[in-house]
Amino acid sequence: MNATLPVLSVLVAVLATAAPWGLPAEATFILPLVVVMMVFCWRALPGTVFPAYLALLLGLLMDIVSGGPLGFWALMALIAASAGGRTPSLADSQDVNRLWLVWAGVAVLIAVISWLLGSLYFLRFIDLWPIALGAGASILLFPVVLRGVVWIKRGKLRPKLYRGWT
């Protein structure tokens, strides 16, 4: 399987995050983290190809669209890609909960790095609450997003590898 399907799905998600959903100011961190989570999921799935440089490019696109500092979401996508690539895949462990736990750790790491980078960027402590809310929501949404990613890839996977997910 080449990288077309994963990249296209993440690209659509990037464009969707830019749409004016009307979310409150405190919830603006959730949607970009969903995109980062998709990168993580695609990298963790067995038999998929999602090079790190493509994750960086999609992150850059998110930076450009959001108007934020160039390289910020690219860095977050890269962290997720690295973590996803090193995670024991579902094929090895057949355990979604373990992957969920890994994502929880990655989400916390991303939240901390975001806050530190943001504070460094503006030379003042930025509000932690929206970032923490986004990280928490992304952890809760992980099974949904993983299921979505598996659903996108369905047909090319052996169902027995995903107990209860396909």
Partner: peptide, 15 residues
């Protein structure tokens, strides 16, 4: 019309 919202910890902007 607004065609995009900015999302992230840094910026509140719209296109």
């Amino acid at each position: 019309s607004v065609i995009a919202d900015a999302r992230g910890p840094f910026l509140r902007s719209a296109l």
